[in-house]
Every structure is written in C-alpha cells, then in structure tokens.
Amino acid sequence: MTSPDLPPALIDGLGVRRARPLGGGDTAAAFRLETTRGPLFAKTMADPPAGMMAVEVAGLQALREHAPESLGVPEVVRWTEDGIVLEWIEESAGPRRPGTEEAFGRGLADLHRVQGPAFGALAPELPGRIGSFEVDLSPTQDWAEFLLERRIRPLMQDAVASGRIDPRAADLLEELAPRARELAGPDGPPTLVHGDLWAGNRLVDAEGRNWLIDPSAYWGHREVDIAMMLLFGGFGEECLAAYHAQHPLAPGWEDRVPWYQLPPLLVHAVRFGGGYGDATTRALLRLRG
C-alpha cells in the first residue's frame, strides 16, 4: 500500500509494495519504499521552488562521480520536480567503528581536490539555488566578491527585512565589507563543495562507510564545508585532523571560520528566527575584533 503523498510519476514502475513515512526535515516528507528491487528512499515536497530538485540531483550526481570510493553518495533512481528516489542506505545502529572519523576526513579532503572552471553553479543550465534559497550562481573567478555580494549581503538584507535580526548587524557587516578579500582568505581554485555539510547530511552505514546526502553543491571554496561542519558539531577531532593531514588548509583558516559561517547562520535566521540572529551578530563582532 503506497502513500497518497507520493506522486505517481515518482514511483510508477518501481514495484513499490509499501511506503513507510520517516521522520524528515522541516520542508519535505520522507519515506522508506519497500519495492521488488529492495528498499529505496523517497523524498517529496509540496510546491517546491522551481528547479530545487534539479539542483539537488545535479549535486548528488557530481558528488557521486567525483567522491573517492571511501565516501559514498546515493544513486539517484528517479526524480521529478517535486520528489526524488534514492538508493537506500542502511544506517549503523551502534557506535561508530574505529577509523570512521578519520576516513571521512580523508575522503572529504580528496573530494575537495576536484576543481571546476569557475565559482558558481555546477552547470550553466541549472537555476541559481542553494537549497530553497534563490541565489546568483553565474560563473565568476572572484571568490571573495561572490561570497560577500551573492551570499552574505543578500541574506543579511533578507534577515533584516523579515525582522529576524537586529538591523545593527547590517551596519557591522558594512564595517567589515572593505575587508572582504582578507576575510575570505588566500585565493584558491573553484572546488566541488557539498554546500550544506552539517552532521545530519552525513550518514554512516552498517559497514562503517561514510555517505553524503542532501547536498547544495556548487563550485565554491572548501572552507565553506569546513565552517559548516564546525557550526553545529557532530564531527570528531580525528576527522579534521585527518583532513588537514591529507589536504592542509591555508594558514589562518580558524580566524576565517566566522566569516564562512555567516551564510548558514543567516539562512537559519531567516527561516527559523530564534537565536540565529544573535549568533550572526556575535560572529560579526568576533570578526571586527
């Protein structure tokens, strides 16, 4: 018996015998599909922003193509404008095996060696989206300007306009704006980034293998992923140590973390309010010194 929340176009022909709802995110409904080919994962959204699924699919396919063998990315089985079906990942039910954190750090370091032609969207035909947010992802060679003008400033404007943050935070940002190039750090090549790498978007399966899910992937700067990993925690010290041993970050990266955390903090401020606006202001104050 299938669920009425699953669009027929998404599951027709997959031999679905049963769909069991799962605990999902705040914007999507998730299901385990029991099919004739084994279990599959499905996610649907009601009236998603145009192109959102296409961007997620492109991200999954890019990560799957370029990730090292140690770092899994689920196969896209089927997708439509309002849903996606992926291979099922059987998560580990017990403690993580020794070496799992180090393996993730090394795998991510190898992934971050993949370079693109310019900062921005993975492909020119894709809409400018990172998750549900519309952004300008047209190609550019100027990462520092991209980060300030296409991510931080627009999100700050949205947060102020929605009343989610004290307008004084925008004044702090303008104080820092002339230092945008310094705050972004040394120039580096456009790198394939996951784009939303908090602990919930990393799975560990029953065999101890790490997996990446729910990307907002684009050609960016690898410190984007590192800063996101540090924002909410969930990654062991061994993970970052293994990353640095494999692919060291430029000196001063720790000081740049608050700058790179501004986009996700502002996204959360706009969507959820709460203490995220205050956290954004604290990050700006740290950067101002």
Rank of each mutant, 00 (worst) to 15 (best):
G24H: 05
G24S: 13
G25A: 06
D26I: 04
D26M: 05
D26E: 09
T27Y: 11
T27P: 01
T27S: 11
A28Q: 14
A30W: 08
A30S: 15
R32H: 07
L33V: 09
T36L: 13
R37A: 15
R37N: 05
G38L: 10
G38Y: 10
G38K: 09
L40R: 06
L40Q: 03
A42C: 14
K43P: 13
K43W: 12
T44S: 13
T44Y: 14
M45K: 13
A46C: 12
D47W: 12
P49C: 08
P49Y: 13
A50L: 14
G51N: 12
M52Y: 11
M52C: 10
M52G: 03
M53I: 14
M53R: 06
A54S: 14
A54Y: 03
A54I: 04
V55M: 07
V55T: 14
V55E: 11
E56A: 02
E56N: 08
G59W: 07
L60F: 06
L60T: 06
L60I: 13
Q61I: 01
L63I: 08
L63H: 03
L63G: 06
R64P: 00
R64I: 02
R64T: 01
H66I: 02
H66G: 03
H66T: 02
P68A: 06
P68D: 07
P68I: 04
S70E: 13
S70T: 14
S70L: 07
L71N: 04
L71E: 08
L71Y: 03
G72K: 01
G72H: 00
G72I: 04
P74S: 02
P74R: 00
P74T: 02
E75K: 02
E75H: 02
E75A: 04
V77M: 00
V77S: 00
W79A: 09
W79K: 01
T80R: 01
E81A: 12
